[in-house]
Amino acid sequence: MRIIFMGTPDFAVPVLDALAEAGHDVVAAYSQPPRRGNRGKVAPSPVHARAETLGIAVRTPLSLREPRAQADFAAWGADVAVVAAYGLILPLPVLAAPRLGCLNVHGSLLPRWRGAAPIQRAILAGDAETGVGIMQMEAGLDTGPVRLEGRTPILGKTAGELTAELSAMGARLMVEVLGDTDRYPAVPQPVDGVTYAAKIDKAEARLDFSQTAEQVERQVRAFNPAPGAFFEVHGERVRVHAAEAITESGEPGTVRDDRLTIACGEGAIRPVLVQRAGRGVMTSAELLRGFAIPEGTRL
């Protein structure tokens, strides 16, 4: 097929690669404009960089609402647009331009977790499973019918691990759907069970020890790798990359022993992997050897 690809972050790159490997003619890649990174350097998005490597024309409009941008999009004469975490709203003229419309790789089991952060929200909510759907896009927020769906248990996975897994799964499913669109008709989403996955606010990454230990441990996994769950002690932020929930009691936010066990509203967590600002990832034992956090410390 003649395809326009639309995506921005790492999640979308395996989908782009799968389309190219399947022999489709990816005529253009639309991505968010290059942005200034942590060190002040302006860099293209992962999709932008990968598309250039593959020799695919790249477009980075700030918006697709202008008639000129919509006309340019339609001029590609695409059979279908494949969308994966693009980051811009697609207006109706764009949705209608390709012959088969726009197909989205969405990282949840729709209609649960429509919106910007479905993977993190599924972990935070304690969902037993999640998945990915190939959705026929329409004007509403992730309201379109689904052509094909895959599922996976969440278990103890981090957002980073789930993102990689769902990206690979979505790439396979998208290639399958494009191989025979008649075999996978668009099925309307159920009316019941709709939830919305709001964009992650960095403030949510501060560990809330008034919650149960299970909920705090989910925070750690949901915000790994970004924005990174943390607590503050001695005026310094300590990032928690992994933690375990254990049976313990005490005043929420209080360090209970010399192993950095921290009491929660119910139970306690024990950080396993941590990181101080400007340092590498280390175990809690390694942290405590050079950064004392005595029993009784209130975080």
Rank of each mutant, 00 (worst) to 15 (best):
G23Q: 13
P227I: 07
S167L: 02
V13C: 13
I269G: 10
Q211E: 08
G40R: 05
L90G: 07
E244N: 14
L260P: 08
P225M: 11
A243V: 09
I56C: 08
L166V: 08
G170Q: 07
A116P: 02
G55W: 06
R276F: 03
P111L: 03
P271N: 11
E295Q: 15
V94W: 11
L92M: 15
R68C: 00
G144P: 02
A75C: 03
A159L: 07
I123M: 10
R35Q: 13
T181L: 08
H241Y: 06
L90K: 12
T8K: 13
G278K: 14
V177R: 13
A197H: 04
L90P: 02
A226C: 00
M169P: 02
A85N: 13
Y30M: 04
L148A: 15
P153C: 01
P118L: 09
R114G: 01
Y30W: 14
E286M: 03
V220P: 12
R239G: 01
E217N: 12
I246R: 14
Q219H: 15
H234Y: 08
G228Q: 14
E214I: 04
A81P: 04
A49L: 13
E66C: 00
I154F: 06
M6H: 10
E66D: 12
R112N: 02
A168D: 13
P111Y: 04
E176I: 01
G115H: 06
I123C: 11
A117V: 05
Q136P: 03
A277R: 12
V220G: 08
A226S: 14
